[in-house]
C-alpha cells in the first residue's frame, strides 16, 4: 500500500460556532500505479485534502501513512524532505520560476537530491521528452503558452520518478482541448512509468479518462472510494 488515510479530518477556526470542517473523517487507500481524480465544486475541501497528504497542513484528527510512515507525526523539516523525495507537485497556475528556463525549472529539485550532474542531465532531458517539450528547453516561462508551461511543471514533477504525484486543479487555467491533452499525458505517464497520480478537478468532462473518481462535497468523499 502506497498511501493509507484513516479517519482524516481538518478543522479551521478555534471556536465551535466558527469552525469549518474542510475535511471530515475521510479514509482512503491508494496503491502504486493508481490514477485517481478527486472531483467536486470549489470549497469542497479538495485542496485541503491534497495539502494534508503532502504534509503542508497537519490534520486535526486521523492518520496519513505513506509507505507505512506517519506523515502527520513528522517534523516540518522531515515533511519538507519527504515532499522532495517522494512527491511530485503540479499546480493550477504552474508555479514555474520566471527567471529560470524550462530546463532549469526541471533541474531545480533534482539539484537538491542528486549530485551526479550527468544523471541530472539525463533525467531532465528524459522528462522534457516525455512531456513533449524538448525543443522548448531553453525558453523562459513567459515565452511559452499555458499548456506548454503546465508540461514543464509536469516534467519537473516526474523527473525523479516520485512515488506519488499530486496535482491541484492542473487543468483549471487551460482550454478544454489542452486540458484533455494534459490528462492524456498524465495517463500516458501513469501507464508507461507506473506513476501514481492523485489530482483534483472540478471539470466533470475529464473523468472519462480516469480509473478512479472520488467525489468530494463539504469535506466528505461521497463516492468512488471502493
Amino acid at each position: 500500500m502506497l498511501l493509507e488515510i484513516k479517519n482524516l479530518c481538518k478543522t479551521y477556526g478555534n471556536q465551535a460556532e466558527v469552525q469549518v470542517k474542510a475535511v471530515n473523517n475521510i479514509s482512503l487507500d491508494v496503491t502504486q500505479g493508481d490514477f485517481s481524480a478527486i472531483i467536486g465544486p470549489s470549497g469542497s475541501g479538495k485542496t485541503t485534502f491534497l495539502n494534508l497528504i503532502a504534509g503542508l497542513l497537519l490534520p486535526s484528527c486521523g492518520e496519513i501513512l505513506f509507505q507505512k510512515k506517519a506523515i502527520h507525526l513528522m517534523s516540518e523539516k522531515e515533511r519538507t524532505s519527504f515532499r522532495l523525495n517522494n512527491i511530485g507537485f503540479i499546480f493550477q497556475n504552474y508555479q514555474l520560476f520566471p527567471m529560470l528556463t524550462a530546463y532549469e525549472n526541471v533541474e531545480l529539485p533534482l539539484q537538491l537530491k542528486e549530485k551526479d550532474q550527468i544523471k541530472i542531465k539525463d533525467r531532465i532531458e528524459k522528462a522534457l521528452e516525455l512531456v513533449g517539450i524538448s525543443s522548448l528547453a531553453q525558453r523562459y516561462p513567459n515565452q511559452m503558452s499555458g499548456g506548454q508551461q503546465q508540461r514543464v511543471s509536469i516534467a519537473r514533477a516526474i523527473a525523479d520518478a516520485p512515488s506519488l504525484i499530486l496535482a491541484d486543479e492542473p487543468t483549471a487555467n487551460l482550454d478544454s482541448h489542452t486540458a484533455h491533452e494534459i490528462i492524456s499525458l498524465f495517463k500516458k505517464l501513469n501507464k508507461e512509468l507506473n506513476l501514481t497520480f492523485l489530482f483534483s478537478t472540478h471539470d466533470p468532462r475529464l473523468i472519462d479518462q480516469v480509473d478512479r473518481v472520488l467525489t468530494m462535497s463539504d469535506g466528505i468523499i461521497t463516492g468512488g472510494i471502493a
Binding site: 519538507t80 519527504f82 515532499r83 507537485f89 520560476f97
Partner: peptide, 16 residues
Amino acid sequence: EDEIKSLNIIGIPSSW
C-alpha cells in the same frame, strides 16, 4: 511570497 511558497511545496528546504 508565492515563489518562496512554491519552493517550499516542492520540497526545497528553508535553509536553501
